[in-house]
Amino acid sequence: MNNSTDISPELMFTETDIGRRNRFIENVVKIFFLIMTCLMILPLLLIIGYLFYKALPVLSLDFLFTNPKDNMRAGGVWAPFLGTIYLVVVSLLVAAPIGVFAAVYLNEYARDNWFTRIVNLAVVNLAGVPSIVHALFGVGAFVLFAGLGESILAASLTLAIMTLPVIIASTTEALKAVPISFREACWNLGATRWQTIRRIVLPNSISGILTGVILQVSRAAGETAPIMFTGAVFYKAIAEGNPLAYNITDQCMALSLHLYTISTQVPDVTEGIPYGTAIVLVGSVLLVNAAAIILRIYLRTRKRW
């Protein structure tokens, strides 16, 4: 006979005061953190809803395909929209190869020595440089020193350097996700380092790399400060409906700068047009992001290891 059998089953399986209190605290804590999380997510829905509601009167396909008119007080967003596309595409062409190969270097080539540590530190710091400092750099290096002048090329190069860390970070993640045993198997077959990367590592990490590239696009599309003084202008009329209306040595309009201009610099803008511009900008950025997320989920389900 020991003491435990003295306790009746009811007492054994009913909750003690301490247990009840603990459960209560845990629930309170859980709900508290849930509310905190939701309070963070609420603004997203609220903001998009508000912008969309205010923009509804002007939103139409015409809005996308007509130039701003009447000193930017009326009309659509064709010139800025096309300008943003130009800036994004050119910056992507520069940033994607450099970023992907930089990540390949960091992950596949670099040994763990002081040089690699400095490169990593540089990537971290490049990501932390304020956007307006990138703008100053763009003015000093591309516009003045390289003599490119204020042009799409100069602005895109500035954007490319600014968004490089995005591509490097996500490509590094993607490369790290490829198991080391894949590489070892390949090396054992006598393949060289580059053959291994080309045939095994890159094909197996292409989804992650693409996600990073897409995120770069959305980041570049939304930036204002770096392009303000390097190639984007307040106003420039171009041929409507002609997707090749800009030259890369021209200046261009950009959606983000256009939104800034018409909401702060131009008086008496038709109600709704700034909201419409904001919705076009947010909408395209979020669509691009959604594409990245869908791609990521789709390719994750197809993963073979």
Partner: peptide, 19 residues
């Protein structure tokens, strides 16, 4: 959702602040 929140351009946040 957090990724979406991070993706909203700063000029749009400024515009929200303004309005």
């Amino acid at each position: 959702v957090i990724e979406f929140l991070a993706a909203i351009p700063s000029v749009v946040w400024g515009f929200i602040g303004l309005t």
